[in-house]
Design a protein around this nucleic acid. Structure first.
Lengths: 152, 152
DNA sequence: GAAGTTATCTACAACGCTTGTTGAAAAACA
DNA sequence: TGTTTTTCAACAAGCGTTGTAGATAACTTC
């Protein structure tokens, strides 16, 4: 994802108007690696602008996705997650306890579909979701700490 | 997934009651390879039992998932899909036009996470979603037919 | 096979996430 | 500064899904 300044420029050059709300969202997303939901972005943005509405956040996220500056993900956690990392090809780690999502920057070039198995599909891309437990949700055996049990 | 008769037995042996509605749902799911949504199951079941409620379908699907007879999937098509194939390890093909889902029965044993890239996650499983166009949604170049354009 | 117990049924309302609508307000451009 | 156009906040509604209620049906025991 570009810097807030570059995004400001990009929005203007594509006929979009640049508002304080949007710039606030740009800053919130910049450098975020948590793959926040719209609600999470809104929560952070609200700390800076109390009146910003959730609808505005959704709209700006969609604009950014349309411009290819973020990508919206559905990894089965119940809400759409937004990933500002569009430069490195990567897959995702998802915690099955707390829903945390992280990038797994690795390419699996050997992902070839066996002939005959593709059932006539014209396959364009492959996404891998690795499910497991994030460091915070692991039992003590691995980390030596007793984790705060994230209620399901 | 087991046969309707075996499922009847399984439900009884796990303290669940067997109703005409449930057996109807067993039959609908048996041999289904379309990964239907709850709504889709309900639509088919309704042809046989007009009064069956959507809630009943959801509940039975959850029971079946709890028993490990089907698996619920979220492949980003907006609704939960249910997969009766729990015997063959496989991944999924998803049509980005019409949302059709098919099994891709293939194992990718070389899916090893590079050391250090797992960010402390304890990874238990990996799901691959292949996105593309199903035979019905492909342009004429491949199939020789003009497809009915599924409006996005 | 009938009565009693328990789970399940349908119908309806409500939930969480997301999107449409509206008039007001602010950004861009002259 | 005035004009045009977009975006804003607030509200309501949409979707898929789940909770609640009393009525009904399945299993158990006699």
């Amino acid at each position: 994802m570009k810097t807030p300044e570059e995004l400001t420029e990009l929005f203007r050059s594509t006929g979009r108007k640049v508002t304080a709300q949007r710039q606030c969202i740009f800053r919130v997303l910049h450098g975020d690696v948590t793959h926040p939901s719209a609600e999470a972005v809104h929560a952070v943005a609200s700390r800076e602008m109390e009146t910003i509405s959730l609808k505005t956040v959704y709209q700006t996220l969609h604009d950014l996705a349309e411009l290819g500056e973020i990508v919206s993900l559905d990894v089965g956690t119940g809400m759409t997650r937004f990933d500002p990392n569009v430069d490195d090809p990567h897959h995702h780690l998802v915690c099955r306890e707390c829903g945390r999502v992280r990038d797994l920057v690795a390419v699996f070039p050997e992902l070839q579909i066996p002939k005959g198995a593709e059932l006539g599909f014209q396959v364009g891309s492959a996404e891998i979701v690795f499910r497991g437990l994030c460091p915070e949700c692991q039992p003590a055996t691995r980390t030596g700490r007793v984790p705060a049990r994230a209620g399901k």
